[in-house]
Amino acid sequence: MDEARRAKLAAWLPAGSEITAMSLMSGGAIQQNWLLDVLQDGVLHEWVLRTDSQATLTHSRPRAEEFALLTTAFAAGVTVPEPLMLCADALVIGAPFFIMRRVSGIAAAHRVVRSDTLGGGREALVRRLGQELAWVHSVRSDNAALAFLSPHPAVSPAQCFVDEMRGHLDAGRSPRPMLEWGLRYLERYAPPRGEIVLCHNDFRTGNLMVDDVGVTGVLDWEFAGWGDRHEDLGWFCAKCWRFGSAFEAGGIGTRAALYEAYEQASGVPVDDASVRFWEIAAHIRWAVIAVSQAERHISGTERSLELALTGHIVPDLECHIMQATL
């Protein structure tokens, strides 16, 4: 960020604010995250400024919507970086941005699933995550701040999922019989439409920041939308997000602890069969995403070894899908 933009940012901040440090965090091809230290009345605030990269090609949720999701989640008690200020005016730093309180901890999945002590220990951490999910799901579709989220169609979330995934398969370059097989299974055994709640839709180890004591931030709200609560529970428990760990709840702890804490915090019983249904769906969804990521490499849209290797996750996912449905 050049001096002119930094000066405009300083002028936009509340009176008496002085920017003492500002640096771009690594990663984030689509969004930029800036570490921002601000002195206000002698008190140092450690914040993160989140904005769009200059050359954004990929469709991404607008910053104002992400800010509204974070604000709603924070008010519902979910542990998220506290959202502080939103600037929808692109003229200040060149793109809309928001500022949130900085949180610290570790999100790296392989480190989290290997640790017996992070987050206060496996059972304490997984119980806390069950509570966090319950708080996410306490948000209902009449919430005016989230009116920008597409209303959920009248069909069941399961059938909606099947229809959406079939659309992606139809647009792909190769037939995918194992994924079709899995989708047909889901269609045949789809749970009925239940209560529609706010779903995070990417609540998994790797997107959950923890420290030695507990959860410090539920991150990455890009895919949030209305759906079935079991969809988030299934995504979290799916084998593909256990990172080689034997613990069924996110590779972190036991399924029983997750369910029990979720039920206590939400007052809603967990339907184990529905969670397992959505675990099959999770493998299909991840496979469809992996296929499309590899396609970006193969087509030349974005040549990348990481994208190329993601395509090679698909056969393993297909094996899980077939084993779970035969």
């Binding site: 079939r166 019989p177 194992m178 079709e180 097989w181 989708l183 047909r184 045949r188 090679h312 996750i313 698909v314 056969p315 393993d316 297909e318 094996c319 077939m322 084993q323 449905t325 035969l326």
Partner: peptide
């Protein structure tokens, strides 16, 4: 045909698909 429901409960096809996925997994993973 799978989508049209013509292979519902077709365990023979299911096993073929699993074997195919396993053969590809041996290379990819």
């Amino acid at each position: 045909d799978i989508r049209a429901g013509l292979h519902d409960d077709d365990a023979l096809l299911g096993r073929r698909l699993l074997a195919y996925a396993e053969a590809r997994r041996k290379i990819s993973s």
